[in-house]
Amino acid sequence: MLELDNIAAGYGKLQILHELSIHVRPGELVSVVGANGAGKTTTLRVISGLIGTMGGQVRYDGEVITGLRAHQLVKRGIVQVSEDRDLFGPMTVEENLVLGAWTRRKAAINEELERIFELFPILLERRRQAAQTMSGGQQQMLAIGRALMAKPKVLMLDEPSTGLSPKMTWDVLNAASAIRDSGVSVLLVEQNAAQALAISDRAYVLESGSVVLEGPGRELAGDERVKKAYLGL
């Protein structure tokens, strides 16, 4: 449903992505792993229209969406959780969540809120608290919850484990699996390769802006080259 076809992109004259092609099918959890600077975050930025492309196409359900702005993507069901979460710090947890449903009908909001509170009970407990006063893990849950309020068809998670404890990282990744099980496609970008591969249906390994390996998550986790290069085994 989401396809990146021969993407070339970068910043100024510096090209980061070279003929990168990846795709995500409906209901799939796909991760993109690789070292720092391999182009993982740049890939997400291309999809979400934050940077332009030098070549190639992004397609969604057959429609070319290259270069659409963030709010136009949300309307189509492609929602991103950025690495620095981009919460509305001074506003309450509940306000953040309600704003997540900006593109949707008002009537659906309460029902959706209840679903999010079921997935992340801590958010119900903290609903009146300002987002910026919560811990890193709680903020990550709020960021994911806010993204889910838009009822995405594809959810993109950019390095959700950044700054989280190992226990918290598992909580967040398990939440990502649960979201996939509810029928949402998930595109996960992670530096934490071992854990990401363990929960992925499929995965891509990026190196210098191109895909060097591709396959089912567990298979890649067992691959000697991956183990050596990314898992430190």
């Binding site: 979400s48 949300v74 991103q80 509305f88 704003l99 900006w102 838009a150």
Partner: peptide
């Protein structure tokens, strides 16, 4: 940026 991400 967060506002753009929620579709505003």
């Amino acid at each position: 940026q967060g506002a753009g991400l929620v579709g505003i």
